[in-house]
Design a protein around this nucleic acid. Structure first.
Lengths: 219, 219
DNA sequence: ATATATTTTTAGATTAGTCTAAAAATATTT
DNA sequence: AAATATTTTTAGACTAATCTAAAAATATAT
C-alpha cells in the first residue's frame, strides 16, 4: 500500500508530465505540492525504490506504468467524488475540491466502480474535467478556449482551465456555467477583452485572463 | 485539527467507556486498538494536553466534553457512510465496516449533514446501531437479546452485538436480517440453544453464542 | 502484611516525512 | 571556456507515532 503522501506525489507528477512531455523537475514538484526540493528528492528516491517512477539523479522524473495507473485511479476517484458531491449532496462547484482531495485516497476498486455506476458513468466532473474510465482511459476535450474564438464565432462552455474559487464564483455570477452557449460579439484589440452573448440573452464583457481559461466546444 | 490516529483513540475510549462507566484502562485501549500499552500512554498524554481526555497517572482515562463530541461525530460519520454504502452502492452489510473506518475521518460538518439529508435522516445503520443526530444524541435500543426471550415469546430483529463477517454471513445464510420476526419454539436447557421460527416460515436451531448477540424488540 | 503478579509508565530507539544549510551538478552568461 | 547563477542532492536535525525492555506503581494471594 501507498501512503496519502506518496499518492499525492504521483498525482502531482502525472499532472506536471501532461504539460511538459519531458521528465518533471524536482522544483516543479516542490512548487506544486508546496514543499521543499529536498523533501521531493527524498520522496522520489522512495518512489523509485518502489518502481513507481523512473529516476536518474539530476535528470528529472517520470512515472512508470505502475505509477501512472495509481495516479490515474486517484484522479478518477477525485472526479467521481466531485460529481457525487455536486449532483447528490447539493454542493456548489467551487466547494468540492478540498473534500475530493481527501475522498480520493479511499482505496477500494469496488467503491469506485459502484460509485461510478450509481452516478450513471459520468464522463466529466463539475468543472468539465474528463473522468478516467475503469481502464484508465481519459477522453480529453480539445484545447480550444473562448480566447481562441474569432468575431461572431460561437460555442458551448465545456470546462475550465483554472479552478480557483474566485474564478468559479465570478463565472457563476455572470451565469456562465457548463453547457452555456456563448457567441463573440466584439474583440478589443489592445487588451484582448471580449464582448460575448450568453445563451442568446445578455451580453457581458470578459477579460483575456478570463476567456483564456474557459474551454469551449465550437458549435 | 486531530490526526486519524488521535480520532481512533477517542473513538476507542468512547466505546470502552460505554461498557465500564469507570475510567478506561490503558491495557483495554491497547487491546482494542491492537497496539502496545506504552504507545497508549504516550497518546493519552498528548490527548490530555489537548484537553480531550481526563488523565491521572495509573488512574485510567475518560473523555472530556470536547473529546466526547469528537468521538460521537466520528461514529455518526461512520454509520451514515455505512448506510450510504448499503443503500446506495449495493454493498452487503458485512462489507462496509472497513471502508467506513476510512470515510469516517473525512472531516466536514457540511458533508456529514448533507449526506444525512440525502439518506433521509436514517436512525440506524445496517447493523442496527443507532446513528447519533446532528446534536450528538444517540437513541439506543433496549438491551434485549434473543437469548433473553422465553418460550413462545416473539420479537423483531433490530440489531447485532457482534459485527464479525462470519457472524453476519451466518445470519444472512439463515435469512436472519434486520426486521425479521422471530418466535421461540423451544429452549434446550443444557446448552441454552434455541429453536426459533423465522418470519412464520421456517424453523432453525440457534446456539446461545448466536442468540445472545442478536438484539430484539419484543412484539 | 509481605511476597508475587499484573498493570502502567518511562527511557531510549525506530520509521516516515519534513526541514535548513551546505555541497555538488548542471545551466547560463559573458 | 571561465565565471556566475540556478537546480538538485546530501547531511544532519526534528516531529508524530510506534516499539522493546526495564522501572515504578498498583492489585492480588498467601
Amino acid at each position: 500500500m501507498n501512503s496519502f503522501t506518496e499518492e499525492n506525489y504521483l498525482k502531482a507528477i502525472f499532472k506536471l508530465s501532461q504539460k511538459t512531455n519531458d521528465g518533471v523537475s524536482t522544483n516543479a514538484i516542490a512548487e506544486s505540492l508546496e514543499t521543499k526540493a529536498s523533501s521531493v528528492t527524498d520522496m522520489i528516491k522512495k518512489l523509485s525504490e518502489k518502481k513507481l517512477v523512473n529516476y536518474k539523479k539530476y535528470q528529472g522524473v517520470s512515472l512508470t506504468k505502475k505509477g501512472k495507473d495509481i495516479a490515474v485511479s486517484i484522479i478518477r476517484n477525485h472526479r467521481l467524488w466531485e460529481v457525487f458531491l455536486v449532483e447528490k449532496l447539493n454542493f456548489k462547484w467551487d466547494e468540492v475540491h478540498d473534500l475530493a482531495e481527501d475522498l480520493e485516497h479511499i482505496n477500494s476498486k469496488k467503491l469506485t466502480n459502484q460509485l461510478d455506476a450509481f452516478l450513471e458513468y459520468p464522463k466529466y466532473d463539475p468543472h468539465g474535467d474528463p473522468i478516467p474510465d475503469k481502464d484508465g482511459n481519459i477522453h480529453r476535450h480539445q484545447d480550444i478556449t473562448l480566447a481562441d474564438l474569432k468575431l461572431n464565432e460561437q460555442g458551448i462552455v465545456v470546462g475550465v482551465k483554472e479552478h480557483s474559487k474566485s474564478y468559479l464564483n465570478y463565472l457563476e455570477s455572470i451565469n456562465l456555467v457548463l453547457g452555456t452557449e456563448i457567441k463573440v460579439k466584439e474583440v478589443v484589440d489592445f487588451d484582448r477583452s471580449m464582448s460575448v452573448t450568453i445563451n442568446k440573452e445578455n451580453t457581458v464583457n470578459i477579460s483575456h485572463q478570463a476567456s483564456k481559461n474557459l474551454i469551449i466546444k465550437r458549435s
